[in-house]
């Protein structure tokens, strides 16, 4: 059984929330800046840019799917969201091409 409280807090976490993703993208396009980043930092920044316009629910569901919760039955338990919220988020992510709504398989974030 998944601990709902812990996962709901962890999923959907946004790194670098106080900077506009467009500004971050501008920084990343500068070689001297992007080359100074570690792989982890670069990954977090790219995720921030990629998911900036996503809703909180979408982020939570996406992270849970990445984490292996690929069943619509387990996602509400893992994320702490209601069934409706999960389905809505999955549908939205599917329309973005980030998950398949049938098999609920996460697509990797474009780096």
């Amino acid at each position: 059984m998944v601990d709902k409280v812990t996962t709901a807090v962890e999923y959907g976490k946004v790194d670098y929330p106080n900077i506009d993703s467009r500004q971050l993208k501008k920084f990343m396009q500068t070689p001297s800046f992007s080359q100074s980043l570690s792989t982890v930092e670069r990954g977090k920044m790219e995720k921030r840019i990629d998911t900036a316009t996503w809703s909180k629910d979408e982020r939570i569901v996406y992270d849970a799917v990445i984490d292996g919760y690929t069943s619509l039955d387990t996602l509400p338990v893992a994320t702490g969201l209601t069934d409706t919220q999960v389905r809505k988020a999955v549908a939205s992510l599917a329309s973005r091409g980030r998950v398949s709504s049938i098999s609920v398989t996460a697509q990797p974030v474009q780096m």
């Binding site: 929330p17 506009d20 467009r22 900036a52």
Partner: peptide, 11 residues
């Protein structure tokens, strides 16, 4: 001007 989900339109 804080947004958890940034608008798709530029500021």
């Amino acid at each position: 001007v804080m947004y958890s989900s940034e608008p798709s339109e530029s500021a």
